[in-house]
Design a protein around this nucleic acid. Structure first.
Lengths: 130, 130
DNA sequence: TATCAGTTTAGAATGATTCTAAAGTGTTGA
DNA sequence: TCAACACTTTAGAATCATTCTAAACTGATA
């Protein structure tokens, strides 16, 4: 609890009740993939009712501070990943199935980066099913 | 024109005025990336006013028939690619910058596919800038 | 050429996300 | 300790890409 407060402060985020609850859930030591909706549902189960607006705000605040990764898996919703290490994903849109690939993947044969551009990240998505 | 009709028929798509115009634009021999919106704008420039609903319908019809690839680049809109070969992309969300990587990319070190699943496709997105 | 299934379309509906502006709350300095 | 203020939260409205609806239209076929 105080760890969480410190953790938020150290990321220049005021430790409000809501952020403490959300951070407590997200950063409990196990990797998680969430959407605004799934996070809301999960917190509601735990009797923490936080407005969707705040959930969106908080996910973005955490993302802006590098505490979450944003995943681009399908065009209909945004996923956030608590595992911020370089890693990739197996994904089945049909089944909303999403698992980390933590093994060291190598992408070989990339052409040179376009002029005046820098690579921000390389995302490998292994789509399952169709 | 008759080629286009034949082309559509051979894909079990009735060659309507609208589909002929859209196919004529999309499959003119140069690779293209479009969204429903950009396609609509591009056709309007050519004095072809086609309803957005039809543009969405047609893009999906073409996609379902394997004439287009669907790209998952950002969560706010769907991109379609006339290049249906296996290939990947450089992408800058900020600049709406999108180019094909046609070189033979190899992804090494993938773990084994989850039980009872089959890989549909592997998508590599090289994100530029942030 | 009449018929009908397949298409197109305007406009409404949907659903994720963002915005607004008013009320609430950490933080800080005295 | 507390006043004051900047930062947050929130309900509800707004936005925007996309899908749906159901009525009008049009290729294909006999």
């Amino acid at each position: 609890m105080n760890d969480i407060k410190q953790f938020l402060r150290s990321n220049a985020l005021r430790p409000t009740k809501q952020r403490i609850v959300i951070a407590g859930y997200l950063f409990d030591g196990t990797d998680k993939h969430v959407t605004a909706e799934s996070l809301s549902t999960e917190l509601a189960k735990r009797k923490h009712i936080i407005s969707l607006a705040t959930i969106y705000n908080t996910l973005h605040d955490f993302y802006e501070n590098g505490l979450l990764k944003k995943l681009t898996l399908s065009a209909d919703r945004v996923y956030f990943d608590t595992n911020t290490d370089d890693h990739h994903h197996f994904y089945s849109e049909k089944e909303q199935f999403l698992i980390d690939i933590n093994k060291n993947i190598k992408v070989n044969g990339l052409p040179k980066t376009p002029k005046n551009k820098k690579i921000n990240k390389i995302e490998v998505i292994v789509h399952l099913d169709k």
